[in-house]
Design a protein around this nucleic acid. Structure first.
Lengths: 331, 331
DNA sequence: CTGTTAGCGCGTTCAC
DNA sequence: GTGAACGCGCTAACAG
């Protein structure tokens, strides 16, 4: 690993000139520049990002914390963040908190000092802890609202309203909501949107849970749903919905004909399921890209404090919903 | 962001002493240590990883490149690497190459200078490019064999042999292999293991593909399988197998009764599918953890050049395999 | 046990 | 257009 001095010596110029060649090439005389580049090439020199970071006070790295890489909602988001970060010449740290608030804190703490900015996707950690922790590190949150912190949120209102309209139109009179983690902002948001839409369309709403956002939770929920006897279910996310689908089939209940199921997220699994899952599409990739854009603004000192980008959702109708076995009386 | 000098001044000691308090606390006198810690606490001081890296010549970071985060095989591997890395006080960079050799190269190049070591999971890039690139950066590869480079490989032999025995015992006389990407070492490895096992048990083997390791590929493969009329299929991985399952059902073919399907990886999707997928379990988490251990050895200068950790596989029988509609005549 | 000294490799004034 | 000098924040000798 050659250093800048080696290159300078070999090219017969000072270290400053070498540095300039890599930062503002136009400023350096043609022949000097060529000599430097030649020397750098034969020596295999590349500026050390570490030394550069120390000097500049910026690392050129971005940190991203997600609650669970294995949740198919996040990979597209991660990919989008990575792509957008590279576009801005930044590398990306990804960390997985395993849905655990304590781990999340530790990860954020570990990352904070080595990145220029932090993107927190669906953070589970308590607000006070989080504020204390990210003070001094530019932060953008995804799918959570924190006064004064730039955020990208997806709004379930449109999708949930469409879901309720869809179910009402099919003749359902009540809906069971399978709740997600209590600490998850998304859960409160989705429940609220569902409540509003149900009130508006005169449907009854009941709730089961909370459930961890996993396939297994949905399996467990299946028996509860059957016991309660609902005809339409909206799950916190696709994974729970898919677990539910599997369990219902296992118990001999026909999805759609007997019980309609709607998920949220529209991960690629929704299309894959059988029957294909009707679900509320949440634009994960767009959210990730928007978060990076917001971060870039923050880092360039733009007046973005408290800004919140909102991304709409929409219902994707597939085959897991149908008219109930015996239509409810109109309310 | 307070610096070490601030803390030193406030605690009335030299910078070296402050440094020692954070590196070898036992060496510092009780009261000095307490004063330093108090000062650091009130000033909110934490050693700068960047400056530390520059001075030490090590970053304390590990890089991990995977071909596709969205492939459910990788999240458990990533989680295991992250966990193991943290255990060794190292942070983790994760990058996704989107199954694309060029991106892989660019990512490795970008990471190489900011990490102490690189873990390459199922690298797609050509051997020559790869060797040139990682020269100078300690590297461990997962699921690929490169002479002289430490590696962790999963061996499909056991699982594939069990799969063939299983199918033969059920009465199948031939097997169709749905191939994965040609550049993938795993594909060659799996095909070879399958060939050997088939020869041993006197089954005929044919091949379709190559297919990208995605659900959609499996859907496409479905029609090809039906056209060819095979009674047993082994897919390169679970995702392809699941796409196949979906397509077969769609076409009215009953999985297991009409066509037996076996996947490879045993991702969580395999259990989720309906019918649940018989598959060859590949220990992804164990592979990730082993890779970090190997890396730690390499970094501490151990004599591990060319070492290769081998991890066995095993067949997990579920419900996607059964006797063929009309048993083949014994060969 | 502690302070002093000397860089790690680079980017940035500020003169020339 | 170019070089000299300085320091980013920290740790690793070396004395004491």
């Amino acid at each position: 690993m050659a250093t800048i001095s080696d290159v300078a010596a070999r090219a017969g110029v000072s270290r400053s000139t070498v540095s300039r060649v890599f930062l503002q090439p136009q400023v350096v005389a043609e022949d000097a520049r060529r000599r430097v580049l030649a020397a750098a090439d034969t020596l295999g020199y590349e500026p050390s990002p570490v030394a550069r970071s120390l000097r500049r006070g910026r690392t050129g790295n971005l940190g991203l914390v997600v609650p669970d890489i294995a949740n198919p909602f996040f990979p597209p988001l991660i990919k989008a963040v990575q792509r957008q970060a590279r576009r801005h010449q930044m590398a990306l740290f990804v960390a997985d908190s395993d849905e655990h608030a304590d781990d999340e804190l530790a990860l954020v703490r570990a990352m904070a000092k080595q990145v220029d900015g932090l993107i927190l996707a669906s953070p589970r950690v308590a607000e006070a802890d989080l504020r204390a922790l990210i003070e001094g590190t530019p932060t953008v949150v995804i799918n959570r609202r924190l006064e004064g912190i730039p955020a990208v949120v997806t709004t379930p209102e449109q999708g949930m309203t469409q879901a309720v309209e869809h179910l009402a139109a099919l003749g359902h009179g009540e809906i069971v909501y399978l709740a997600g983690p209590e600490q998850a902002y998304s859960n409160q948001q989705r429940r609220q949107a569902l409540e509003n839409a149900c009130r508006l369309h005169g449907l009854r709403l009941s709730e089961l849970g909370p459930f961890e956002p996993h396939f297994e939770s949905g399996v467990r929920a299946g028996d509860l749903v059957l016991a309660q006897g609902g005809s339409a279910v909206v799950a916190y996310n696709d994974q729970i919905a898919l677990g539910l689908l599997a369990r219902l089939s296992e118990r001999g209940t026909r999805v759609a004909q007997d019980v309609s199921v709607i998920g949220v997220d529209d991960t690629w699994l929704a299309r894959m399921a059988s029957p294909a899952l009707t679900t509320v599409r949440v634009p994960a990739g767009a959210a990730g890209a928007a978060a990076v854009r917001l971060m870039v603004d923050v880092l360039s000192g733009g007046p973005v404090a408290g800004a919140a980008v909102e991304l709409a959702t929409e219902l994707i109708v597939r085959s897991s919903t149908a008219a109930p076995p015996r239509p409810a009386a109109t309310a």
